[in-house]
Design a protein around this nucleic acid. Structure first.
Lengths: 211, 211, 211, 211
DNA sequence: TATGAATGAGTGTTCATTCAT
DNA sequence: TATGAATGAACACTCATTCAT
């Protein structure tokens, strides 16, 4: 019962259909891995959700581990692109960070991408390849960009605390907390992540006179 | 191959030995769950590591899930006690937070307890009982204490940013980041967590003149 | 080591082979359940005997209990059909019952079907669904047919004891005894079930002048 | 928690208490074996029901099989005694059989002893020792007695069908059916076993003029 | 390519049996 | 004798992986 391709779609080429199937598998696997973790996820369920036979998964991925790793890679790339491409042009560093925070909340914390990050934290130690990849592609690049911003802020006098440039992690820390909070504690005590990040920027740049 | 009791130990009572065995199981389970996650952990391995027969686990715990939950509880309680009992009397709020940070680094980040926290983040969504327990016993209590400190700091003029009291999470955020970093990225780029927390306190209280 | 299909068989369709495998499992399970009872039967042995992998059993049956119940159903149906379809045509009621007895001895008492009945007696109380099914499909139908015969016999004057129609069980009772005897005591004292049933019919219809 | 001896009982001797415990184990085992069959019965449950520690069972019985076999023996003896001791004094053979039927219904069919017989049917094939014992102690003796009665009946002219003496099983058959019916089908269709046995005697002796 | 039936190693859990106290 | 904690072999059931169609 192949349902990967919507019936209305024009008869696409062999290659296109293969790509569609592969994408369907990846999407389904993402859902399952997020919901259950690596070991507890059944490829049977992934296949069912993808509208594909179980054997088909093995035409696209060597095994469960490979699927998992490629999946995380696939899921990470867009985040990286989205978060790193808009370089802080024009305005102040605070404005740049505010824009960054806004994007992060909208595109990561409020979406399934937050779960991906939690997934990496959860399974990372068992999948060094993933931790490596994540460090290389996201962490190091993200922190470098952040450090650049901080240095500009310091140079411009927006940021008083010079040592902050040694720990760009501090700037991102509340965003990480927001992700964890969302997964685990939101129903116990909802968190206004937006406001939290604003307050944190106040800490870094000094409080603004509220508009 | 019973190895639970060290040979040198005096012939302890039935109850004592039972408690020892139980403790051995919990310790072994902790190691295994941390290393592999819930599903991938084999009770066979737990038993082997605890020096106990597989069936013995079931004399102490109803099933794997119960073992996991009780284990997290057991592992968490001492941390909570250690972190919440020494209330910062006397000195300044900054000093209190510095003491807290030092303790946290020494007792949590640098120990296996960090892994427990990662374990909670990883498996929490699948074990609501654990997330509940953790929120109730650790998060809510910890944040309440933190909020109290912040308010004192604000009242005394040590902390300028009044809104901080609404987000005690901000104060703890870098500590969380330190935990995650340690598990995933330490070998790519070692993090001086001690210094990071100090810088973060500078952000909150204003930079000190370095001694 | 698939042995379900005999080598000489023509390459059958997927569905046919599935049916063959299912039948092989049922046959193997019948042997094992008869020999050991429900609990003591190992699905490993069933699989081995059926020439099938253990997992294959679960492609056809939800679990051991379902296998057992479906098996009894499967094994019972043909007997019922065989025993109930030949309606007493033409001759006397005695002749009809003699034919019935002969069939019963040949098709049930002398075959593995006797063991099935013993199996039902043995495990019935623990499997209400089976007792229900057996009552509905075999007992009630069989007794109704028997009662019909008795009434005809009474009407025709072949049977003198009118009250017999209230207890068709009496007519079948020696057949049941034959089954139990065969399983348990045959080696201690062989029983000529054929002759026993004849004598019993003499009791009901009056002795014949032996030919 | 030993509860085998009632508190009010006088401090009995060591041997007496041991016998009491043994009896308690046998009684408990009977209940459990009847309810679950041999394999599905847990010695843990037997011990609990007997108010005895699990290990205690092994002080009295070599293993589960031995317990089962001794138990059936123990449970059978009283039945045999009760059913065989009242020898047909005085009256007619019909009266003797009517007395027998009455006793059988009261003492066997209506009691747990019926379950014992079903237990023997169920587990007999797997426990030849039990089938042997049962044949020797019950079946052969009971059928011999029955045959004796039949012969007297024939000699006296009460029983017309001479061949009946070759199949005393016919006389008992409805009683067996009553036992099976009680265990399996009573809730579907209650059976008036008393009346059934009476009708059966009418078949053997000829109908009476109802009082 | 795609399918899904079949495989069989692997794992949680149970329970008869033992034995130190 | 009696206990019940401990053992470990056994078994039902699962699921990643393969392969004939």
């Amino acid at each position: 019962m192949p349902q990967a391709a919507l019936p209305g779609a024009p008869a696409s080429s062999r290659a296109e259909r293969a790509a569609e199937r592969r994408a369907a598998i990846v999407a389904a696997a993402l859902d399952e891995f997020i919901a259950r973790g690596f070991t507890a996820t059944r490829l049977d369920d992934v296949a069912k959700r993808a509208g594909v036979a179980k054997g088909t998964i093995y035409l696209h991925f060597k095994d469960k581990e490979t699927l998992f790793e490629e999946l995380v890679r696939t899921a990470i790339i867009p985040v990286v692109d989205r978060m790193t491409t808009p370089p802080p042009i024009g305005g102040s560093v605070r404005e740049a960070l505010e824009a960054f925070a806004k994007t992060f909340l909208r595109e990561v914390v409020a979406t399934r991408r937050a779960d991906i990050i939690r997934l990496i934290v959860a399974e990372g130690p068992r999948f060094p390849a993933i931790a490596d990849f994540y460090y290389r592609e996201v962490i190091s690049r993200g922190l470098a960009a952040m450090r650049g911003l901080i240095e500009i802020g310091i140079a411009r006098g927006e940021i008083r605390l010079g040592e902050l440039k040694n720990f760009p992690q501090i700037v991102v820390a509340p965003a990480i907390v927001a992700i964890v909070w969302k997964s685990l504690f939101e129903r116990h005590a909802p968190l206004d992540a937006n406001e939290m990040l604003r307050v944190h920027l106040d800490l870094i740049f000094g409080a603004r006179s509220k508009p």
